[in-house]
């Protein structure tokens, strides 16, 4: 409890604590930045800026509290303040190129199932993933954001409300509209592939 107040730490101690508490969030944070900016360089800059801001305000961060939500909040604010004006795309992006590499560990994680999976199934998985990505990327950024926070990162409504600075009721209605919109886009795709939903 009375471990430290933060302000008396030496630079080395502070740096070590910072890295231990906040760097594990790097992967989800970078993915969030990428989904917001749709550009790897911008995502890179945004994440660096987020960590530098977090470092400046680290004395105010209470150890053991939700580091992930805190960093996501900083990143989202930086994005709104600086990046949003600058990058007015969704420009045409070749998603198959940008997302050509992905974490195959996730796919193969389920007890060696992957070794027996045939190639056709894997390419169908890829195809679905590409389609979900382009449907998601075509959504307005506010819609994209709530879906990523909720479905990809598993934040609760309450955490989302804090990250986005909006009431929980707004989180709910925005999520609902975002999902309807995503559903519409994916249904169109399903129809074009000859499936009736």
């Amino acid at each position: 409890m009375s471990e430290q107040t933060g302000k008396q730490l030496s630079k080395e101690e502070k740096d070590a604590r910072f890295e231990a508490e906040l760097l594990p969030v790097l992967d989800p944070l970078y993915n969030f930045a990428y989904r917001l900016t749709l550009d790897e360089d911008d995502a890179n800059d945004l994440v660096q800026e987020t960590y530098l801001k977090a470092y400046r305000f680290f004395d105010y961060f209470e150890q053991g509290t939700n580091a992930k939500a805190w960093l996501f909040r900083i990143l989202k604010n930086s994005f709104i303040n600086e990046f949003r004006k600058k990058s007015k795309q969704p420009a045409k992006v070749d998603y198959s190129e940008v997302e050509g590499y992905y974490n195959s560990d996730d796919v193969e994680g389920e007890g060696g199932v992957a070794s027996t999976t045939d190639m056709r199934t894997e390419s169908v998985q890829d195809l679905i993933g590409d389609e979900v990505a382009s449907a998601l990327n075509a959504l307005p950024v506010d819609f994209r954001t709530v879906i990523i926070l909720c479905d990809l990162e598993g934040f609760t409504y309450e955490e989302m409300a804090k990250i986005l600075d909006i009431p929980i009721g707004t989180v709910r209605s925005r999520l609902h509209r975002a999902r309807n919109s995503l559903k519409e886009k994916l249904e169109k795709y399903a129809k074009s592939m000859g499936y009736n939903s």
Binding site: Y30, V98, E99, Y102, I128, A133, D151, L152
Partner: peptide, 11 residues
């Protein structure tokens, strides 16, 4: 579909 199929980008 989102949590199971959206590929994560590598840092």
């Amino acid at each position: 579909l989102v949590c199971g199929h959206l590929k994560r980008v590598i840092v």
